[in-house]
């Protein structure tokens, strides 16, 4: 029985459901012809939501392109998130970031379009936290494909040598685009690379929210107490593939049996069953959460659709800081 409080577990569950329903909604919007680059989080809800649940409100997130779990987990209102994805002026980046979600108040520091560009940036946020003698932590996500970028090496070395309060989470979902990582990556376990930086590397079941929470909490505590970074590798799977075009196994690069196997490890279902098994929640309580979330996402859709687009003047603003 994990020493995680009921409130936290229910928050994790409801955010995972929120993410799942949001993800489904984005798929429908894409099908209806609205252009959103959807890197679906389906199948990867556990780690993103659980790890962000282990943060304090003032902690930072340096996100990456896979899905929206880090945004929802950090407390972003789906209305604002969806508005941004649709390019509306009510979005968190005033309709100029699109999938590159950022939010100053939530300390979501900006999702790059360039793989791994944010890893040294995360090290620098960590350096700044140390120099300002603050107590915050940075949670930095990236994928198995990005783990081969030079910037990962440079950024992890910097964070390690500075003992910066950064927790790296690599979500290893076995593929980058349509290439299996066995063709591209020199190690089976990316966590092994932590050794090269003299930092701890941990492997977790990326579909197990409780494991994700516990591993993240430990690494976050370690970072906060000045002991430096940790690399957590979460083994998981993208059920819907790379983007919306890949939902139904584009090009047959991954066998249907493989997808079916991973469907059985559905992280949302897994947590739901676990919560009932340890009698932390009843089916009825969880159904209520599911139902409320569906309504919330319907409202988010309505809000985003009714929101105005930014004006041309707004779009051309903010290239420079005038102050």
């Amino acid at each position: 029985m994990p020493a995680i409080e009921k409130d936290t577990l229910l928050k994790i569950y409801s955010n995972m459901v929120r993410l799942r329903v949001f993800d489904d909604k984005v798929n429908l919007l894409v099908e209806s012809g609205i252009r959103i680059t959807q890197h679906s989080t389906r199948g990867q809800e556990a780690t993103q939501i659980a790890a962000t649940a282990a943060l304090e409100p003032n902690d930072y997130v340096m996100p990456y392109h896979r899905g929206w779990g880090w945004a929802i987990g950090k407390g972003m209102d789906p209305k604002i998130l969806l508005s941004e994805l649709m390019g509306k002026g009510t979005g968190c980046c005033a309709g100029k970031g699109g999938v590159h979600i950022a939010d100053w108040k939530l300390r979501i520091m900006g999702r790059p379009g360039v793989q791994a560009a944010h890893v040294p940036i995360a090290a620098g946020v960590g350096l700044s936290i140390k120099m300002r003698k603050a107590k915050d932590v940075v949670l930095c996500f990236f994928g198995d494909g990005a783990s081969n970028e030079g910037n990962i090496h440079e950024g992890m070395n910097l964070a390690a040598v500075w003992k910066a309060p950064v927790v790296f989470i690599c979500e290893n979902n076995l593929y980058a685009l349509f290439t299996p990582n066995i063709e591209t990556t020199s190690v089976q376990d990316i966590a092994d690379r932590a050794q090269g930086y003299g930092i701890p590397g941990a492997i977790i079941d990326g579909n197990d929210a409780i494991a994700g929470y516990e591993a993240a909490k430990e690494a976050i505590n370690r970072a906060r107490s000045g002991q430096g970074p940790t690399l957590i590798e979460a083994k998981t799977y993208r059920i819907h593939g790379h983007t919306a075009m890949d939902r139904f196994h584009l090009g047959g690069y991954r066998p249907k049996e493989e997808v079916d196997e991973w469907e059985k490890k559905d992280p949302v279902k897994k947590l739901r069953e676990r919560l009932m098994e340890i009698r932390m929640a009843t089916a009825q309580e969880l159904d209520e959460i599911d139902q409320k979330t569906k309504e919330e996402i319907e409202e988010a859709e309505k809000f985003a659709k009714e929101s105005p687009y930014p004006t041309r003047e707004d779009i051309l603003r903010d290239v420079y800081c005038e102050a």
Partner: peptide
């Protein structure tokens, strides 16, 4: 406040961006 960085121009330039974003 004077930091000798490793040979990693992309890395420490990016780290500078992160530090600049958050108050340095």
């Amino acid at each position: 406040r004077v930091i000798n960085c490793p040979l990693s121009e992309s890395g420490f330039s990016g780290a500078g961006v992160g530090a600049a974003l958050t108050g340095m």
